[in-house]
Design a protein around this nucleic acid. Sequence first.
DNA 1: TCTGGGGTCCTAGGACCC
DNA 2: TCTGGGGTCCTAGGACCC
Length: 382
Amino acid sequence: MTSERRIAHLDMDAFYASVELISYPELRGKPVAIGGRNQHRPRLLADGTREFSRLKDYVGRGVLTTSTYEARALGVFSGMGTMKAAKLAPDTILLPVNFDAYRHYSRLFKAAVATITPTIEDRGIDEIYIDLTDELDESVKLAERIKQAVHRATGLSCSIGIAPNKLLAKIGSDLDKPDGITVLGPADIPLRIWPLHVRKINGIGPKAASKLELLGITTIEQLAQVDAALLQEHFGRSYAIWLHDVANGIDNRQVVTASETKSISRETTFEKDLHAVVDRQALSVLFTQLCTKLAEDLHRKGYVSRTIGIKLRYDDFKSVTRDLTLPEPTADAHQIRLAAGNCLKRVPLKKKLRLLGVKASGLIDASASIQTVRTRQLELDI
DNA sequence: TCTGGGGTCCTAGGACCC
DNA sequence: TCTGGGGTCCTAGGACCC
């Protein structure tokens, strides 16, 4: 017999923006957007007050990472081009991203949750899943305790959804934001899940959603009731089965508490598009810098990599990748640069480029790798 | 004034080996 | 000489997520 699971999804409220407000409390209640580079760091004036950049001060490429709820009310959202946001709401305060601070608060809130309950799955910097099945307390009580612990540790609020699986818990945490608690059971599927747009399902992105829309499907209810054969025609067997399951609230994924890093990468979008021939010198310098940073990342995290890859994005936004598996794993900047250079030779370079990236995959624990090298050395000696 | 950076997972074809 | 599957590795691209 299987007992009903109890899964929570915890999502920090406007996380990056909320962390910034800890440093700049005078911005509380104002529209604030996060994005862009360091020249938009606030300046301390002689009278002790701070002067902030505004969206209208921004020039160049880039998107907003997030915004406060006040900015969202003006139509300024994460992922939006900064220039576009500036047109909509020119006087919105602009702050540069400060990932070190976000990582710090991320560690704090996760540690706080861990003092309440141990089975936690990391889902990035600002969200986690928690398996509460073995906890004794009632769900709302538990959620309140977790929220209190997070608030004590960080001063920040979060929203929590509790449901029989990850899919519903994730949808639930979004239903009462910010600072909410939502508990969903099977009976809530037709009442509270089916009226929602299919995009609320984690795993249905823009492409799948617009394909569904062409079939006349926009709500989860319509997806739940569509003929299975029609879905298979348009999406292939396994994705069609998955769509049908999630529309009916079915999701058997476990909460996974440990996972291994699969790849590490560095990429950069240029201020202006560059051409492989005309801007050869500048590109080469950037390319080497990326490889050096990647090598540092590998060293710091204790990995060596068997497969080095590159990514290019052209001015028409199309991208290509190439990769190369090496005979021996490496974390050496020069080796990485050589391999990446070889990859670059296999790519068309007529169009202008807007992005260049380098990636290390096939990661092996560096200390384990030393062992295999020693073993091989011994075999050679024999 | 379009569209960042760092990830994961899936699919699919070809090489190669048994 | 021709004809098989199966399994694994490598590569490329794409969708999606935070």
